[in-house]
Design a protein around this nucleic acid. Structure first.
Length: 520
RNA sequence: GCGGGUGUAGCACAAUGGUAGUGCGCUAGCCUUCCAAGCUAGUUACACGGGUUCGAUUCCCGUCACCCGCUCCA
């Protein structure tokens, strides 16, 4: 708290108080701009809050992150299939999921059991009344504890657990609302209001009704499409639990707080998978829902490590009982230690059979799986690893960033992005040592060979060779191939490795093969 | 949402009530045979809007964006 006095002081005070960490973030943001990873959206108009554009290298990086996820989650295994659903869904989807509730209703949350409801529907009690209520202290065992408290000024208690600890009344506006249809909803509103003098509440209702006729919402998560398509996918692909449905795509949330560059923004890309497993009574071979929950926690943590994130910067953090959503049986976050502290990369949630049952209730369509061997209809339980593509890309970028002192025998230090080769935007850069003796021609032929074989390669002949190497280091390019005087004699070139800066000679004819092998 | 701070070129910084410099970068040329060499030329900025003023990048107000803290986070 003693730091509070330093708020807002010029940079020097800021730097003095913290380690080098915030400075690193500034450098990364700067590098992102300078090298074409990330720009602020609509920059020429002064920028738009929380919106960012990926530039040429950033777009490649993010594509690669998504491709690796798809490869690990869908193409690399037989039990998961992918979909690509519409961003706009039927509004009732959001009624069922609970996302729509807050739009017009005065909502309150119970701070103890996480029940959410309408303040005007909850039991009323005179302010200051002492009440007794029960709180679940262990979600695994369901163990409860009795507590006492006084009712606050809202004069309500939780209908579920009786707790007086409620949040303030809030109207949420999490989702982006728009309208589906070619007629501007304002026409509709104007028509209804024409010539009427309405009180505040009436006005609110008329407006709301008019808007709701055509209102649709941008999805705040991709998950719901996996639930609504549960039977479509299960039956067409002839799947049997445990199986999963995966999807990548944009989601939109009006976040209260946006922070840390691309870490939390209103438009973001998710990589979600819903893994449907038999409920406990139908589980086989000890592989019950909790087995799969733990399996996915480990699996997802390993994915980040396999793509180069440092182990010591990663952790799995189980949610405490009071953090869990009311429907969740368990939840763990994969967290990365960003320069500003630990932050979520991905959440793995055990959602029980909540979602399918909700949609069954709201759609009146049966959403059960029929197991012919056990002759049973059941609602599978759902384990959901939900990752953020933008957060992952940012973490990979931050983790890869390194500033090195001058290597032996050289004068200048270097900035290098030690990105995993499969994530690197450019895989290989090809240079002529000098712009003479036909070297540029040979180098251009080599780079064209890479393009032909779908390896993202780049050609550069500008400036001295050392500078060109450093430029590529800063973009994270793992390999550089240089055509030199010897190439014309024996058909060999050098290949330089980004991290070690070591070079070896290979044959021009083998270049594509060598690089492809290292990327595999 | 609340409080504080910041906003000058692609990036990092400087100066100034009389319209702006430096370094790096970038472009072109010369030179250059393996790790940010050198020379020459060129390129690019006062976030936006209003006010005060003879004159504003500089002072004032508002807006926008970003940063820090709190709050919030389905």
């Amino acid at each position: 708290m003693s730091e509070q006095g330093e708020q807002g002081k010029p940079k020097k005070a800021k730097e003095a108080k913290a380690s080098a960490e915030p400075e690193i973030m500034e450098k990364i943001v700067s590098l992102c701009k300078q090298r074409g990873f990330v720009f602020q959206s609509s920059e020429i108009y002064g920028g738009l809050k929380s919106c960012y554009d990926y530039g040429p290298l950033g777009a490649e990086l993010k594509r690669n992150v998504k491709a690796e996820w798809w490869r690990a989650m869908v193409h690399g295994r037989e039990d998961i299939v992918g979909i690509d659903a519409s961003i706009i869904m039927h509004p009732n989807v959001w009624r069922a999921s609970g996302h729509l509730a807050g739009f017009s209703d005065p909502l309150v949350d119970c701070k103890d059991c996480k029940e959410r409801g309408r303040a005007d529907k909850w039991p009323t009690v005179p302010e200051g009344t002492e009440v007794e209520y029960k709180v679940i202290v262990d979600h695994q065992t369901g163990k409860k504890e009795t507590r006492k408290g006084a009712v606050g000024k809202l004069g309500i208690v939780c209908p579920n657990c009786g707790s007086p600890n409620t949040s303030d009344i809030r109207r949420f506006n999490l989702m982006f609302r728009t309208s589906l249809g070619s007629i501007d909803p304002i026409e509709n509103i104007a028509a209804r209001l024409d010539g009427k003098a309405l009180s505040g509440d009436e006005l609110r209702r008329v407006l709301s009704d008019a808007v709701n006729e055509t209102a649709v919402y941008l999805r705040p998560e991709t998950a719901q499409a996996m639930f609504t398509n549960f039977l479509n996918v299960q039956t067409t692909m002839r799947l049997k639990p445990p199986f999963g449905i995966a999807q990548q795509g944009k989601s939109f949330r009006n976040e209260v707080t946006i922070e840390h560059f691309t870490f939390r923004s209103c438009e973001f890309e998710q990589m979600e998978m819903e893994y449907f497993v038999p409920p406990p009574q139908y589980a086989e071979g000890g592989k019950d829902d909790m087995y799969w929950f733990n399996y996915w926690c480990q699996e997802r943590l390993s994915w980040y490590i396999s793509l180069g994130l440092r182990k010591e910067k990663l952790r799995l953090r189980p949610h405490s009982a009071d953090e869990l959503a009311h429907y969740a049986k368990a939840c763990s976050d994969v967290e990365y230690e960003y320069p500003w502290g630990w932050g979520e990369l991905e959440g793995i949630a055990h959602r029980s059979d909540f979602d399918l049952k909700q949609h069954e209730k709201h759609s009146s369509k049966k959403l059960t799986y029929f197991d012919p061997q056990k002759n049973a209809h059941y609602h599978p339980y759902v384990i959901e690893p939900a990752a953020g593509a933008d957060r992952a890309a940012l973490a990979f970028l931050i983790d890869a960033y390194a500033e090195e002192p001058p290597p032996p025998g050289t004068k200048e230090g270097r900035t290098v992005l030690r990105l995993h080769p499969r994530l690197a935007p450019i895989k290989v850069a090809v240079f002529p040592l000098v712009k003479k003796e036909g070297m540029p021609d040979t180098a251009r032929k080599i780079v064209a060979e890479f393009w032909k074989h779908q390896v993202n390669a780049s050609y550069d002949e500008k400036d001295t060779i050392g500078r060109r190497y450093r430029r590529q280091d800063e973009c994270g390019t793992p390999y550089c191939i240089t055509v030199d005087g010897q190439t014309a004699q024996d058909g060999s070139v050098t290949i330089r490795e980004r991290d070690s800066m070591k070079q070896e000679r290979i044959q021009v004819a083998d270049a594509v093969g060598v690089v492809k092998k290292r990327l595999a």
